[in-house]
């Protein structure tokens, strides 16, 4: 009887731990996105989330302002090249648009007046580098991508939680 229990208990525990591990890894982590601008852009104080969602939308879409009021620099939106959780969250929570609508919006403005299309990047690191280098840029990255090295270049103006 004891032997049978041992035979059952060992595979049972192994199976259970396997299921738990699989289950844990399949649970999506909550994405938090930081909207970032260059540290040299004086519109917001360092690490002070001082822009509202509406303001971020208006700046990112170059909707009412095409240039930053304080520096008179061209606003340069930075975007991810391919669909990712950060992009989905930013589009749905801040722009209230789907990916097709965002593309159409920028393409129509580009055709009408020659406005630059958003600069597109494959990774958060590239967005951080671009936004850090361009005083007029505005982009979004996963908060986990904001290392101390990144924070030396960019500042967060809005946090978006899923």
């Amino acid at each position: 009887m004891i032997k049978i229990r041992k035979y059952f208990i060992v595979p049972f525990i192994t199976l259970l731990s396997g299921i738990i591990i699989c289950f844990k890894t399949n649970v999506p982590e909550h994405t938090s996105v930081a909207v970032i601008i260059s540290n040299d852009n004086p519109i917001a104080f360092k690490d002070n989330p001082s822009l509202s969602a509406g303001e971020v939308k208006a700046y990112y879409l170059r909707k009412i302002k095409k240039r930053w009021p304080e520096t008179n620099q061209n606003i340069l939106p930075a975007d991810r090249l391919k669909t990712c959780p950060e992009q989905k969250l930013f589009y749905s929570k801040i722009l209230n648009m789907n990916a097709n609508d965002v593309d159409t919006y920028f393409i129509e403005k580009h055709y009408e007046s020659g406005e630059e299309l958003p600069h597109k990047f494959v990774s958060d690191k590239e967005i951080v580098d671009f936004v850090g280098d361009e005083i007029g840029a505005i982009g979004y990255v996963n908060v986990n991508s904001l290392s101390s090295e990144a924070k030396a270049k960019v500042k967060t103006v809005l946090l978006i939680n899923e």
Partner: peptide, 8 residues
Amino acid sequence: IINYHFKD
């Protein structure tokens, strides 16, 4: 078209 952007 050649554009010069002074201000918004």
